[in-house]
C-alpha cells in the first residue's frame, strides 16, 4: 500500500505524525513530509491509524 497526501487539504494538525512517527513528520514549517510512502506488514497498522486520525481526511492509503 502507498500513503498519499492531499497537500492543499492538510492543515498541519500532526495527529498522523503522532500515530505513525516512523512514517511521516511535520517539518519546521509545519508541512507534512511522508518519509515512508510504501508500507506493508507492521507499518501498515501505523499507516492506517495515521490515515484515520486526520480530521480533514488529507491522507489516504492506495493500492500498489
Amino acid at each position: 500500500m502507498r500513503i498519499e497526501l492531499d497537500r492543499p487539504r492538510c492543515e498541519g494538525h500532526g495527529l498522523c505524525e503522532e500515530a505513525a512517527p516512523l512514517l511521516m513528520h511535520l517539518d519546521d514549517d509545519g508541512e507534512l513530509v511522508i518519509d515512508v510512502p510504501k508500507v506493508d506488514g507492521t507499518d501498515l497498522d501505523a499507516a492506517k491509524a495515521a490515515v484515520r486520525v486526520c480530521p480533514v481526511a488529507a491522507l489516504r492509503l492506495a493500492e500498489r
Binding site: G14, E17, E18, H25, L26, D27, E31
Partner: peptide, 8 residues
C-alpha cells in the same frame, strides 16, 4: 503560526 504539533 505554522509549527509542527510535536514542537507545540
Amino acid at each position: 503560526y505554522r509549527i509542527p504539533i510535536p514542537k507545540l
